[in-house]
Amino acid sequence: MHLGLYLKKYQKLEKIGLIEIDLNPDNGLEYDCTLTSKGKDVLDEISTLEKEWEIVVNINDDDLEVLRKLALDSFEISYKHKKKKGFIF
């Protein structure tokens, strides 16, 4: 994705207080993002919910790794499809 598109998405997260954006970082990047305490709380809550879900569906580490790989692979397929369509839906 174009850097501007990433920044636009990050700005939405910043607007709701989950991250802070530094538009002039000292690390050579175009911009840098850090989680706020609210963002860290949300991330912790997501991790807790994921663990609860794993228990409910009785999933083991091997199954979880397969699901992660499937999800990541599907993102690439989805991106290629969207790119082919010019990102117009």
Rank of each mutant, 00 (worst) to 15 (best):
K84C: 03
L18V: 03
L5D: 12
E76L: 13
I88M: 12
G86Y: 04
S47C: 06
I19Q: 00
Y6R: 11
R68A: 07
E20I: 08
K82F: 09
E76Y: 07
L7T: 01
L70R: 10
L64K: 13
E20H: 12
G86E: 03
T36P: 00
D63L: 07
Q11Y: 05
I88V: 14
L18R: 04
E76S: 11
L67R: 03
N58T: 07
K85P: 01
L13E: 09
F75D: 10
P25D: 05
G4Y: 05
V56R: 11
S78F: 12
E50W: 03
I46A: 13
L64W: 10
L64I: 08
K8L: 11
N58D: 15
T48Q: 10
H2P: 01
E52I: 08
D32E: 11
G86S: 08
K38R: 14
Q11E: 15
L64V: 01
V56G: 00
D26I: 05
Q11L: 13
D61K: 12
E76V: 13
Q11H: 09
K12Q: 15
I19H: 01
E52Q: 14
L64A: 03
D61Y: 01
L29M: 09
F89Q: 08
V56D: 05
L72I: 08
I55E: 12
E50K: 04
G4L: 05
N24Q: 14
K12A: 15
A71C: 06
L13G: 11
E30L: 07
H2W: 03
P25L: 08
E52R: 12
G17Q: 06
K83A: 11
I19V: 15
N58I: 02
I55M: 05
I77N: 12
K15Y: 05
S74M: 13
K83E: 14
P25H: 07
L67T: 02
G28D: 06
F89M: 05
P25Q: 04
K82S: 06
S37W: 14
N27G: 06
D73G: 12
E50M: 07
Y10G: 03
D62G: 01
E14M: 07
K80A: 10
N27H: 02
F87H: 02
E14Y: 02
E20N: 13
Y79G: 02
V42S: 01
M1G: 13
D44E: 15
E30K: 11
L23I: 12
V56W: 02
D32Y: 14
K40S: 07
I59Y: 07
V66C: 00
N58E: 15
E30Y: 06
S37Q: 15
L18D: 04
I55T: 06
D44M: 10
L43E: 10
F87Y: 09
N24H: 14
N27P: 01
I46D: 04
Y31V: 00
E65W: 00
D62F: 00
G17C: 12
I21N: 01
L43T: 12
